[in-house]
Amino acid sequence: MTANLDNSVKKPNFFTSLIKNPPRKILAPLCAILFILTLWQVLCSGEDANLPSPIETFQDTSDLIFDPFFDNGGTDKGLFWQILASLQRVAIGYTLAAVVGIGLGILIGSNAFVYDAVDPIFQVLRTVPPLAWLPIALAAFQEANPSAIFVIFITAIWPIIINTTVGVQQIPQDYKNVAKVLRLSGTKYFWEIMFPAAVPYIFSGLRIGIGLSWLAIVAAEMLVGGVGIGFFIWDSYNSSQLSEIIVALIYVGIVGLILDRLVAWIASVVVPSEQQQ
């Protein structure tokens, strides 16, 4: 009986303890957000301010924030649909980049001649800014959507190729010797040795790639139009809906973070724990 009583005294409700004694990891960012909002409010509350203050933003866009699922046809859709359209483009372009990039990376990494042949070319191409590819893509595909997807593809593929190549090249000679002594076949060597040895590098390439894809999609969509978060931002600018832009930016940031964490999470599941960097 007394033990029960003790227990209830010693173990207060989880939420009350969280409120009474908030962990610094939560408290500190809350303070920073509050500070930034206050500063923003102070800076933008004058009569001649060019940008809306946070309170104004919230008032202007409450229906946008609270109803992301509306669909009035055309490009007049809720943020959920806008983001979804962008994510679809990223999904296609990024998946293609991952498949082609890992394949090419393995080929280049396992063949010194191919590496010497293409490395200088790739070093130049990878520095080309994503949007510089857009006119070429538009000329080649004659259509907006495939061009945007191509921009995602070409943006994400370089870090994937380069990291996979390095991952394959760094396979320790010891493992290769084991494979030679045991006479592992090509496919067996790939699955038992090359892939597990390179997979941490492949995933660091994939993680950089997803970040770059998301950076590129907003810019690409501003130019190609249609439904998508990039064009939504551009459209809001043209109709002077600055509050909408601010809300969209926050959405873009959060989605980008989720994408990055998603790839990191997949890596933590796929990559053997001994191999995690």
């Binding site: 010891d174 493992y175 010797n177 084991v178 002594v181 038992e192 040795i193 597990p196 040895a197 053997p272 001994e274 191999q275």
Partner: peptide
């Protein structure tokens, strides 16, 4: 002709 290397050469995964 199996080889035992000084650094064991086990596959860590």
């Amino acid at each position: 002709r199996m080889v035992i290397f000084q650094n064991y050469s086990l596959l860590p995964w």
